[in-house]
Simulated scan of single mutants.
Amino acid sequence: MSAEQKLKELGLALPQVASPMANYVRFKRVGDVVYLSGQGPRLPDGTMATGKVGGDVTTAQAYEHAKLVGLGLLAAMKEAAGSLDKVEVIKLLGMVNGVPEFGEQPQVINGCSDLLVAVLGENGRHARSAVGMGSLPGNITVEIEVIIKVLP
């Protein structure tokens, strides 16, 4: 089953690829490796999910925010590779805007990781870091960047 079919089966659709908010590009390709710029959680109305995880945002809510980021990253991967069936996820860096005592960063970033594996299968499995941050741009809850390999 193709990645596009898996998305439909999950009842999900890729969003429009987000435009950079500053002086950078959505992705940079070097040979068969693509570095995708970090993205935040864009809600269906176009606004960004904001707040401190462990404070005014729960781990479960932030998991869903990370899943939204995953959809945006999948859209960027498709643009970079031409097809999601030609993508292998290599490395993911997940950053969580949490209160100082928050320690459930891995559970939050699982929202993105779980989605990538659900859509891409074994090609979605990746090395990963999940870290806490004192703040993120625009007070977004989560930012995630990914490195992928484009398959022949």
Rank of each mutant, 00 (worst) to 15 (best):
G31L: 08
D85S: 10
V108Q: 01
P106C: 08
Y35N: 01
D32H: 13
V53T: 09
Q5P: 03
L115I: 08
K8R: 15
A80P: 02
M133Q: 14
V89E: 05
K67V: 03
G11Q: 06
V34D: 00
D56F: 00
V53R: 02
G11T: 08
G72T: 00
L151A: 11
P15N: 00
G40C: 06
H65A: 04
G46D: 01
A18P: 00
E145F: 01
V57N: 02
A62E: 03
S83H: 11
P44I: 03
G38T: 01
E64T: 10
L68W: 10
G138A: 10
E143R: 13
K8E: 15
M48D: 04
T141A: 14
V89Q: 06
K6A: 15
A62G: 10
D114S: 15
G70H: 10
Y24D: 07
G111Y: 10
S113Q: 13
S129V: 13
V142P: 08
A13K: 13
V30E: 13
I144S: 04
Y35C: 00
E4D: 14
G98H: 05
D114I: 11
I140E: 15
L92Q: 05
V89I: 13
Q107E: 15
P41I: 04
G98L: 04
D85N: 14
L120W: 08
E104A: 13
K52C: 00
G132P: 11
N123R: 15
V25H: 11
A76R: 06
S19T: 12
A66C: 09
V89H: 04
L12Q: 04
Y24P: 02
A75W: 02
L74K: 03
V146T: 09
G103I: 11
G31N: 13
A22N: 13
K86H: 14
A118P: 03
D85W: 03
L71V: 01
Y24K: 07
R42E: 07
K52E: 04
S129A: 14
K149P: 04
A130D: 13
L84G: 03
Q39H: 01
E64W: 02
T47K: 07
T59V: 13
A66G: 09
G82E: 02
D45H: 03
H126I: 04
V89A: 07
K91N: 12
E104R: 10
V30S: 12
V87N: 03
K67D: 02
G70V: 11
E9A: 15
G54S: 07
H65P: 06
V33D: 03
E143V: 15
Y63S: 08
L74P: 09
A13Y: 01
T47F: 01
G46F: 02
S129I: 11
L92D: 00
V89T: 09
V69R: 05
A127D: 10
I90L: 13
A66V: 06
V34M: 00
V89C: 08
V33W: 02
L151M: 14
E122A: 15
E9C: 06
D56C: 01
V30N: 10
K67Y: 04
Q105A: 12
